[in-house]
Simulated assay, not measured.
Amino acid sequence: MSFITQEFTERCGPTSRTCIWSVAGGGIEITDSVTSGFADIAINTPVKLLQNALTGSRLWSSRAPAPYLRGLATIPQNDRLILALDPSLGCKTFEDIRTRKPRLKIILGPDRESPIGFASHRYLEAHGVSVDEIRSWGGEVVFANRPEECLVPCQDPKLGFNAVINEALMTDWWAKLIDGPRGFIPMPAEPAALVTIEKTTGLPGSTIPAGYWKSLKEEIPALEFVDFILMCRDDLPEDVAYLITWILVTKKAKIEANYHGFPGDRAPISWPMDPRKMAKTVYPLHPGAERFYRENGYL
């Protein structure tokens, strides 16, 4: 976001300034900031869950529909959400978990406060391993918002965590947990559960290919958790929307350069960024963004 605001300000009047606001929680406030009119633009993930803000459904069922949300661009990210367990528990599948009823100390996002937390809870419920079930087995449930707040503590055995569910698979946080000394085992998602999760979240099933981590020898099913949307309201001035979209597309090489150390489909932002795919957003395109894409042959 700082890249966008800097490039934007450089092309505005000499006294122009922008401000970037951080959020304290798990991410649902990002969309709230735009729907309320507090923020002009924001970025959030995953897009197939975020589209429910338009209708006030699923994660947004406690909020009014926001049909005035608009998209400026889809920013690509190829991600998944999974559950992983300490190998000492002796579980390699969800059936093992349901049968053994291990005493888990799990860390995950709080329900209904973030896209990650909401998806994580629906994922566990669909597999018959809800937080209530975990507690009934004598387990402990700890909540944290961001991926690193969940994944980094699991790397320290002294903290006692033996289970975690999250996304951000391309990060070292996951690599160290799966291929490092703790050797956590990712649980393959069950096909029937993935069907249920798509109904409750809008997120479809996907897979993690063999070799994604050194210890992952076979492809496993997981939950798709892809792409960011750069969003705004329909009352954002058209010239502002046009300029922001122009920046994202014409200066995208500057964004991509930050991720050339990653394989293109395993970067925090996938590269190369394709303007034709960027123009396909789960919210209706803002007229200013649409005009840019059409003028340049991307629509």
Score class of each variant (00 low, 15 high):
105 K>V: 06
40 D>L: 10
259 Y>I: 04
268 P>G: 09
137 W>D: 00
54 L>I: 14
17 R>G: 08
17 R>T: 13
42 A>W: 06
130 S>Y: 05
114 S>D: 02
210 A>C: 08
294 R>E: 11
206 S>A: 10
206 S>Y: 00
70 R>F: 01
252 K>G: 02
202 G>W: 11
202 G>N: 12
200 T>C: 07
298 Y>L: 07
34 V>G: 06
156 D>H: 11
208 I>L: 15
69 L>G: 04
198 E>M: 14
198 E>L: 09
252 K>Q: 04
16 S>Q: 10
249 V>C: 07
71 G>C: 03
208 I>W: 03
212 Y>A: 12
32 D>R: 12
86 D>R: 10
135 R>H: 04
63 R>H: 13
54 L>H: 03
92 K>T: 12
46 P>T: 06
243 L>I: 10
201 T>F: 07
53 A>S: 13
150 C>Q: 14
203 L>G: 04
95 E>M: 10
98 R>I: 04
203 L>Q: 12
82 I>D: 00
188 P>V: 10
160 G>V: 05
178 I>F: 05
13 G>A: 12
243 L>V: 04
171 T>Q: 13
169 L>E: 01
28 I>D: 04
17 R>D: 03
219 E>I: 08
40 D>Y: 08
97 I>Y: 00
173 W>Q: 05
149 E>V: 01
7 E>W: 06
48 K>M: 12
117 G>E: 01
118 F>Q: 06
253 A>P: 01
151 L>G: 01
72 L>W: 05
293 Y>G: 02
50 L>V: 02
209 P>Y: 05
139 G>F: 13
256 E>Y: 13
233 R>C: 02
6 Q>M: 05
68 Y>W: 11
13 G>S: 12
292 F>I: 03
10 E>W: 09
45 T>R: 14
158 K>H: 08
262 F>A: 09
100 R>Q: 11
103 R>K: 15
225 F>S: 07
232 C>Y: 09
262 F>Y: 15
69 L>H: 12
204 P>S: 13
29 E>G: 11
267 A>S: 14
242 Y>K: 10
216 L>W: 05
107 I>D: 00
198 E>K: 15
22 S>P: 09
126 A>Y: 01
13 G>Y: 13
165 I>S: 07
217 K>Q: 14
150 C>T: 06
299 L>H: 09
164 V>P: 04
72 L>Y: 01
75 I>A: 00
180 G>P: 07
199 K>N: 14
79 D>E: 10
185 I>F: 10
132 D>Q: 13
62 S>D: 15
113 E>L: 15
246 W>G: 00
73 A>I: 08
39 A>E: 06
284 P>S: 09
168 A>F: 13
267 A>I: 04
14 P>S: 05
59 L>D: 03
295 E>N: 09
247 I>W: 00
280 K>A: 04
84 A>R: 09
16 S>C: 15
2 S>L: 14
182 R>D: 02
111 D>F: 15
180 G>V: 09
258 N>W: 11
149 E>G: 11
42 A>E: 02
139 G>M: 12
41 I>H: 01
194 L>A: 08
34 V>L: 08
103 R>L: 09
267 A>N: 02
215 S>D: 01
